[in-house]
Write a protein that binds this DNA or RNA. Structure first.
Lengths: 240, 240
DNA sequence: TGTTTCGTTTGATTTCCATCAATTCGCGTC
DNA sequence: GACGCGAATTGATGGAAATCAAACGAAACA
């Protein structure tokens, strides 16, 4: 599982999705990849235009949104750096992938990527395995939403996000305690993730602040002062 | 997509999973399949013994259960006849697949099936596509649980189950109105599906009965008198 | 510097579901 | 048929989050 490709347009050190591929496949991939910057709010796939693209996130967060008939949104998944965004084999995916923050991605045109996937079994298997992991995670998340209280849900989401930032920080050998970052989601979006209303989310933030577990900076700034305590509140979410 | 295989031990008319395969692959599959009867409550995969099997359900319903650290169960998926049950590529799946009713399945030993999948791309793709469908469905279901009221949830689950029985009934050209069948789940299990308590489920059943939308027979018997009204209560669940 | 606007916070009240508790029903057993 | 058991129903009550409503804060604009 060593790194077999240095994606020419890709500065990521260890390109996780590519590392499982053969040199030949990685080479083919490198020919159709193009680095793109995508502003927050832009649709990656789904929605009215039905643009079909596949991407690997280099920087930023993508939200997978289920638009309900009554107009409300439900966020059913978040994709973080190094993760894959796309829905092979169908034209009209039932959900919309939207940039939650400004993004930097390795993008592949839908047709080229699908063709490549059908001729290179190792690529298909890599995406297949990620899909299985996504499915496991979606089911874990479902359990979380079905059973937990508002406090536990908010803590779980913060743990999930914080753990992603912690992983990134570790690459740069940053301190684990007192993790500080900008939330990639608004209060409304957090509520849409958790099946709560934004007022409830706000109150839970206030409660966590009052207990000294987190502090909020201006805008979307957040500092997790006590990761262990936050984990306790999350009550054992399996964070991938 | 015509039927390419007649699974020698399989009486199912049009074997959906097999129909997408090449004759060669179907032939290989037929060699390692064995029909089994499985009593309700038996574990198909996951759990302490970690037995790894793959199955296609011929008759009955399988529940995918997430066992929480506090001992409560959350049902995160149901598999019906013609559907695939198994989790390739990992040893310790994070959930347990358990027979909700007595089953009849086409079973494959884990190792043989995985080997076959890795040498026959069409088989792998078939399972891949099903996994993607499962993922879509899990996310739809998550939205349902996150947003809907108890009444809508119960109606949604009954619609889902009823639609499966309706599909089966259609094969035999049965009447669509006044659909009658035995629920594959207890009240407790229904509650575990929906993130509710069993008392709440029972009350919603009572409400639907009072409105004349359903009638309950003895044991797990259920008759859907007004499918359209039930669908209204479900408020637009996308039932796969 | 004021004004507008959007996101967030805080407060008051209501609603729905969980919880606790008791009863009934269906089914197997003696 | 009487008993016992587990599952399901029904009732009473409390609590957590939704809802309604208002105020606040931080950018964005003139």
């Amino acid at each position: 599982m060593t790194l077999r490709i240095r994606c020419q347009q890709c500065s990521v050190r260890s390109c996780a999705p590519c590392s499982a591929l053969t040199a030949a496949t990685a080479d083919q991939l490198a020919r159709i990849v193009h680095r793109r910057r995508i502003p927050a709010g832009q649709i990656l796939y789904g929605g009215p235009d039905r643009a079909k693209t596949f991407s690997i996130i280099v920087e930023g967060v993508v939200k997978l949104v289920n638009v309900q008939p009554d107009g409300s949104n439900q966020i059913v998944g978040l994709q973080f750096p190094s993760e894959f965004v796309g829905r092979p084999f169908v034209e009209g995916a039932p959900l919309v992938a939207e940039a939650a923050t400004d993004l930097e991605v390795c993008a592949f045109s839908g047709s080229a990527f699908e063709t490549l996937m059908q001729t290179h079994a190792d690529l298909e298997r890599t995406i297949f395995k990620r899909t299985l992991d996504d499915l496991d995670f979606a089911r874990q998340w479902m359990s979380m939403i079905a059973r937990k209280t508002a406090e536990e849900r908010v803590a779980s989401l913060l743990m999930l996000i914080a753990s992603k930032f912690r992983d990134k920080a570790r690459d740069g050998r940053q301190a684990v305690a007192g993790l500080e970052f900008n939330l990639p989601l608004s209060r409304t979006e957090i509520a849409e993730c958790l099946g709560l209303r934004l007022e409830t989310v706000s109150r839970q933030f206030a409660a966590l602040k009052a207990e000294g577990i987190i502090t909020t900076g201006r805008r979307r700034g957040l500092k997790v002062a006590d990761m262990a305590a936050l984990g306790e509140r999350a009550q054992g979410l399996v964070h991938a």
